[in-house]
């Protein structure tokens, strides 16, 4: 007997975005099954963040559409969308003296859980992301990496919701030290093991080769390649797209 194949988590059909007359995304289509760690790679300006924003439901494509669990984007209110998909935007500077704990708490805004449960989840997230000792500090006085961990902890609270499916991370590792990078990857694995999906924008191609279940390679707004890390991040493709002489040594890409 064949078990019913799980419906894909997200289907994107022909996503196209125009900005000032140029298309910054052109006819991008893909399908993401549940339980996968997907990495989005590509040169600067390839359209990675734009694509992430579309998946997060923050913007609508000029052409094409996104189907989340067989329902079109338009069917969801902002709160419904946020209950399912959590976005961690690129780090931006905070201007007001909220404490780290207050920032993390905001992950519970789309929650329908009780205050007590939320408080536990916030405390757990503060510990998980190693910022419990910063909880009552002014967010503006924290270092870049510490601020990034606050954002990640906030999104972690948001991911604890019953309906949550997808964790979107825009360059989450750029400000983190080695240990916290590993911690972040570990957390991502924890989610995929629970049947949720993770999509992250990364610049470290070797990290993508080691960790990703699937890689989407974007260049100039087009989806150039999609598939397993080994199949997508070959020396030839990477050399071609990033315009750099790259070779494969063992399982790692090397360049001079």
């Amino acid at each position: 007997m064949v078990t019913a194949a799980a419906a894909p988590l997200i289907e994107a059909h022909g996503l196209t975005v125009f900005r000032n007359g140029a298309d910054i995304l052109h006819d991008v289509s893909f399908t993401l099954p549940a339980g996968e760690l997907v990495m989005l790679v590509g040169p600067n300006g390839a359209g990675k963040s734009t694509l992430l924003n579309l998946i997060a439901g923050l913007a609508l494509p000029d052409r094409g559409n996104i189907v989340l669990q067989c329902q079109a984007t338009e069917a969801f209110s902002r709160a419904d969308w946020a209950a399912r998909v959590t976005l961690v935007p690129q780090l931006s500077s905070a201007g007001f003296p909220l404490t780290a704990e207050e920032v993390v708490e905001l992950g519970g805004l789309a929650h329908s859980t009780s205050v007590v449960t939320l408080r536990q989840q916030v405390q757990q997230a503060l510990h998980d992301w190693d910022i419990h000792w910063l909880a009552s500090r002014d967010i503006r006085r924290l270092s870049g990496g510490e601020q990034q961990r606050c954002q990640l902890a906030r999104s972690w609270v948001q991911m604890q919701q019953r309906d949550s499916l997808l964790w979107l991370l825009d360059e989450p590792l750029s400000a983190l030290d080695l240990r916290h990078q590993q911690q972040c990857m570990h957390k991502a694995r924890q989610l995929t093991a629970a049947g949720k999906s993770v999509v992250m924008v990364v610049h470290d191609l070797n990290l993508a080769r080691h960790f990703a279940d699937r890689v989407l390679l974007l260049s100039c707004g087009r989806l150039v390649a999609e598939g397993s890390a080994e199949a997508v991040l070959t020396a030839e493709k990477v050399s071609d797209i990033f315009m750099l002489d790259v070779r494969l040594e063992g399982n790692d890409l090397r360049w001079d």
């Binding site: 946020a82 959590t86 935007p89 201007g95 909220l98 805004l109 789309a110 954002q151 906030r154 948001q158």
Partner: peptide, 21 residues
């Protein structure tokens, strides 16, 4: 009050935690 807190972080952040900005 908490929605206003979220807005302090920025519009993108506020929308990503589910607020109709």
């Amino acid at each position: 009050a908490r929605r206003l807190d979220a807005l302090l972080l920025g519009e993108v952040e506020a929308r990503s935690v589910g607020i109709n900005v």
